[in-house]
Amino acid sequence: MVLVYAESQDGKLKKSTAEAVTYGKKTAEVLGMDCAALVLGSVSDAGDLGKYGASAVHQITSDGLAHFDSQTYTQAIAKAAEQLGAKVVILSHSTTGKSLLGRLAVRLNAGSVSGVNSIPTNDGGTFKVNKNVFSGKALAEYAISSDIKVMTLSGNSLKPEESGAAISVSTMEVDPGTSRVRVTDVTLQKGDVAPLPEAELVVSAGRGMKGPENWTIIEELADSLGATTACSRPVADIGWRPHHEHVGQTGVAIKPNLYIAAGISGAIQHLAGVNSSKCIVVINKDPEAPFFKAADYGVCADLFEVVPKLTAAIRKAKA
């Protein structure tokens, strides 16, 4: 069986779980198995995972799982995987999934690959799966030879597919142990746009903005699209923008459907974090800016003139 750990937040499934379960279902088909989903804690819409192809949804509700701790969560998922006889365990490639992957690999004595982006193949019984390496500059095919396999699924790698209907949730009794992590504070950024790693539309700007006071035009462009904002590294380093917006090799790696970059030169370290985006629009006044080589659409002009025009065009098209 293929077991998908479906992450939740505030008692609701995360958006990425639809992708993870769709991927689990397709992996299960390749292997001739069933796909089951696991939720931890109370999750009101857990049964919806049936729509994406889970033939069973299991839930562990234990006080020990009230807050995330890689140790207790690993214990819960590993015990569920053992009880259910899971051969493949799939996680989202989120901060949560990434901090569980290594632990689960050790616990289950499983071969692990992080950030996979293709449906596995199993020709001649050799399990193979792809992922990006060298910060998106190459693709590697991995062969996993262990009996049990663990993987995190890179976001935006496939479209969720509804193939079934909501199903009922069955409860499992598992003791996750006692957490040694005492959470003292959680601060969530306000606003209703998607956090950068999950965002499908991203508007980003760099040193060409001249100063932090000029960012209103970028925020308005993002607002017209419902996009999340990002920035190049120097801009975060000098404090024009918050650190969590920094994308690139040493920042967040993203692969949204649309990445609009204004006043960013397109240095190789910047490209490393964004070149998996489906569509890239570059706005730069320098026709020689390297970013144009990685772009789908380019506008060679002063961003201070073009960005407001683009915002107006989007608002007009949406009206």
């Binding site: 499983a110 071969g111 692990s112 690959v113 193979k128 390496v133 998106g136 500059k137 190459a138 693709l139 590697a140 095919e141 991995y142 062969a143 996993i144 030879s145 262990s146 070149n275 890239i280 570059v282 144009f292 080589k293 990685a294 772009a295 789908d296 659409y297 380019g298 506008v299 060679c300 002009a301 003139e305 073009v306 025009k309």
Partner: peptide, 23 residues
């Protein structure tokens, strides 16, 4: 060694950029 890379490929580059009139 439970996992090993069996093959690397380089991504196919973008077909050339389409330039749009700023106006």
């Amino acid at each position: 060694v439970l996992v090993a890379v069996s093959k690397y490929t380089l991504p196919t580059g973008k077909t050339s950029v389409k330039m749009i009139d700023p106006d």
